[in-house]
Simulated assay, not measured.
Amino acid sequence: MRLKTFVADSMTKAMDLVRREMGEDAIIVATHSAQNGRSVRLTAALEDDIGRDQQPAPASAADDEDDTDAPDAGTAIEQALAYHNVPLPLAARLVAAGARFASAGTVAALGGALDEAFTFQPIVERLQVRPLMLVGPPGAGKTIAAAKILTRARRSGRAVAAITADVKRAGGIEQLQAFTQILAVPFAPAGTAEELIAALPQKNGTLTIIDTAGTNPFAESEMNEMMELALAAGAEPVLVLPAGGDPGEAAEIGERFAAAGVRRLLATRLDVSRRLGGLLAVADAGQLAFADVSVNAEVASGLAPINPMSLARLLLPDFPANGSTPQSSEAS
């Protein structure tokens, strides 16, 4: 990670400097007022080891074109958030926050607003200490997400092990087991808290990924069972949720899982979803940090960290000013 500090006499000018020197992938990690009270010090970070081909979506060239017919940054952000069905109170906060960075361009303005509104904590396998337990409603994509994390961890050289608590669903054991056999990763099923404790690897330094059965967030017994498993394993529960859901429903899901101790969100199916308001709603309602996103079905390369700028690009594809069907910013 490359860090650089910029000093300017306003936040807008500091953001301009960041964009020019570090590009739109830079993450704002700290802002301070200088001791004299007449300038702003801003620290930005850039992940050098993450290639552009791993980003959830490429930047749109439209932001840098001189197009007199294009809407201003505030209008473009407002239109995009409306298209994605972002809840109105959250959309209003983002538009207001984006106005402070408007001179830096539309993507940078929305990125700055997202950076203020949300936290971003990617899963870094080489640094993860506690086991990761993937939880979420049925059909959210937890098993495939587990396989992607295992694959990425193996590539980084981390020792890993896999456990599935999804022992009742037909094929629940076999699906993850098939991936672990390909990766040559230790695997065990565990249907109870006692079995889960016994299945945890004894070797220090091994990262354990725990897949779970689908949990109905509105069923108290299922949520209690999930929390019991996480407590027994000493695991960090990470919510896995597909994009494209209803924002109101997503917000309630986020609140329920947050109350159960979940602090991070891993979003799936971004490649087949057009409206992402549900993801913003679940993170906002549950105060969940964005971790990673699943951007395609490929187990070997389909998981990527996300930051405010890459999320802004996902929300700001090239779409007509009237808010009709957006056009993908990806090159065809």
Score class of each variant (00 low, 15 high):
G105T: 05
P308Y: 05
L88G: 13
S156M: 12
A233K: 02
I253T: 01
P326E: 08
D115P: 15
I209W: 01
V86H: 01
A199Q: 00
T43A: 11
A300E: 10
T215F: 03
A162Q: 03
L132W: 06
L241H: 08
L196Y: 00
S33F: 14
P89A: 06
I197C: 07
A259E: 12
G111C: 05
G171L: 11
A73T: 03
T75H: 14
L114H: 05
K148M: 07
T68R: 09
T106Y: 03
T212W: 03
L46I: 09
T206P: 02
N296P: 01
P189T: 03
D67N: 14
T75V: 15
E116K: 10
L94M: 11
T68N: 14
S273A: 13
D9C: 07
I144A: 12
I253A: 00
T12V: 12
A285Y: 00
E236N: 03
G172C: 09
L276T: 00
I27V: 15
D318K: 12
D292A: 02
L207A: 03
E174L: 14
G139W: 06
L241V: 12
I306F: 03
I253K: 00
I149A: 00
L315V: 04
S10E: 10
V240T: 06
Q35H: 11
G136V: 00
D25C: 08
D246N: 15
A26Y: 05
A289M: 04
A76R: 04
L183V: 08
A153N: 07
V124Q: 12
S156L: 13
E24R: 11
A146K: 00
V86P: 01
D271E: 07
F257I: 08
L266D: 00
A146V: 00
L42V: 09
E116D: 15
E65N: 11
A26N: 08
M11H: 11
P320R: 05
A162V: 01
A213Q: 01
K168R: 12
T325E: 15
P189C: 05
V40D: 07
K203N: 14
I50L: 14
S332Y: 13
A230D: 04
R19Q: 14
E255A: 13
K142D: 05
G245E: 11
